[in-house]
Simulated scan of single mutants.
Amino acid sequence: MSYSQSRFRPGVLAEQVVLITGASAGIGDALARQLAQRFPGIRLVLTARRQERLEAIAEACEKAGADVLTIPADLTDATQVVALTEKALAHFGRVDVLVNNAGYGQMGSLELIPQSAVERQFAVNVFAPVALSRALIPAMREQGGGHILNLSSIAGVVAFPLGGAYSASKFALEALSDSLRMELEPFNIAVTVIEPGPVATEFADVAKAQIADLPDPLGTPYQPAFETFATLEDQLEKQMWTSDRVATVVIKALTAKNPRPRYTAATGGDVLVFLMTKLLPTRWVDRFWQRFYGIDKMMNGNKP
């Protein structure tokens, strides 16, 4: 039996084809390299918009013993999503694992975020994973199973000020993952969510760039909150995980024969989520985040 005709075996990564989106940096980059190093012979499909960066990562993975296909693509373009899946299936004959890792954070007060920016946030963080999953589910079902792993965030369970658009996209991804998990279990297709906390990646730089594109908050009621937000990266530095550390959690999920629905990749993440969503009164949680993000300065009348 050829590789493309073999049945899917959960957790046996060395025999699988793994498609990783957002593979040109951060968690996607780290995951590709770790998979190549730990599972020689693994087949990787790496996609992102930056072709030169993809090729550099592919070269490193190939040196470690992986068989790599790079496909530059903009996942907000439906035609490119279809082309991506068709190329992957034509090249390797199958895709066993889909890692929906591509994403970014649109930060800012909702009042100041243009509608187009909110729509793009959902296009990247929600609609692209939906499109890729829909495109690959038939092939996974035919080959006897597969695994869809969605990179969410602690912000997909706990919302905070200035992160409404981002959290909404991740909350949506969590709900979609839950529905898919139940729908696809009869076909031996697992669906898993990874929930990182702060990670030392390009995420913060991209978030700052997105904020810079918003209307200037100076002179608006939100100025104190934006000023506080600009200092948060330094405060969170000690809590930040590396991309490699998050990638090890992803691999833990991918190598499990019976993967859990969710894996938290944050220091004290499980405790934080329990406190914020189950134990503490909502008003207390609101006040905590309002102080943390400088909303309390607005409430106290310290307006620009």
Results as ranks from 00 to 15, higher is better:
304 P>I: 05
118 V>D: 08
175 A>H: 14
164 G>D: 07
45 V>K: 11
296 D>G: 05
227 E>F: 00
174 E>W: 01
171 F>E: 06
300 N>W: 15
154 I>G: 13
13 L>R: 08
295 I>L: 13
88 A>R: 13
65 G>F: 01
93 G>D: 09
214 L>P: 03
197 G>I: 01
67 D>K: 13
289 W>V: 05
230 A>M: 09
102 A>P: 03
162 L>W: 05
194 I>F: 04
251 I>G: 03
99 V>Q: 12
58 A>V: 03
85 T>S: 14
185 E>C: 00
123 A>I: 01
234 D>N: 06
210 Q>H: 07
302 N>A: 04
83 A>S: 14
84 L>N: 09
80 Q>W: 07
46 L>W: 14
28 G>V: 03
59 E>F: 08
24 S>M: 09
11 G>C: 03
301 G>I: 06
276 M>E: 12
248 T>Q: 15
119 E>I: 00
91 H>D: 09
19 L>K: 10
18 V>P: 05
42 I>R: 05
42 I>T: 05
37 Q>E: 15
304 P>L: 11
260 R>Y: 06
105 G>Q: 13
246 V>L: 03
153 S>M: 11
100 N>T: 03
16 Q>S: 06
122 F>N: 01
118 V>Y: 10
268 G>M: 06
190 A>S: 11
125 N>L: 01
253 A>W: 14
276 M>G: 05
275 L>E: 10
9 R>N: 09
120 R>D: 10
179 S>W: 04
79 T>E: 15
215 P>A: 13
111 E>D: 13
277 T>R: 15
278 K>D: 08
296 D>T: 06
200 A>W: 04
155 A>M: 12
213 D>L: 08
